[in-house]
Amino acid sequence: MITPIPASSGKYKKTTSSMQISLPSEVQQSTPPFAGHYTVTCTDINGSSYTTSPINVWSTGLAVQNALQKIPFLVDNFELEDNYDGLFYFPQNRINFRLHFTGIDYQMEPCVIASYDGIDLDPLTGNFDM
């Protein structure tokens, strides 16, 4: 709830103008944030793909790193950095991180994020109409 109050302080004059607040329900509501879980799949030099356990969208980079460390060929072979920018601070709006493969000396196929497709946890939901 937002209430405008005519105010004065010292030399500042109280306004006599009329004021009205139009809430987001009348102007524009935001997109619901991400919800659910996702996985990251990476492929090794032999073409074998490994998928992490489900990761909650609320998770920080540390949780993503822990999940990736369980992939055999990635153990101690990468560094992960959260890649937030000023417009998408929260992972609920944009999942974004950077992997530096410090211990791998061949070209990897790009790792892929996908919605979790298991039955025990919720899949990833959001506005994907892009």
Binding site: T31, F34, Y38, V40, N83, F88, N93, R94, I95, N96, F97, R98, L99, H100, F101, T102, G103, I104, D105, Q107, M108, P110, C111, V112, I113, L124, G126, N127, F128, D129, M130
Partner: peptide, 11 residues
């Protein structure tokens, strides 16, 4: 070493 940026975003 290879650096990979991975993102998943919504509209």
């Amino acid at each position: 070493k290879q650096i990979m940026e991975i993102a998943y975003e919504q509209s």
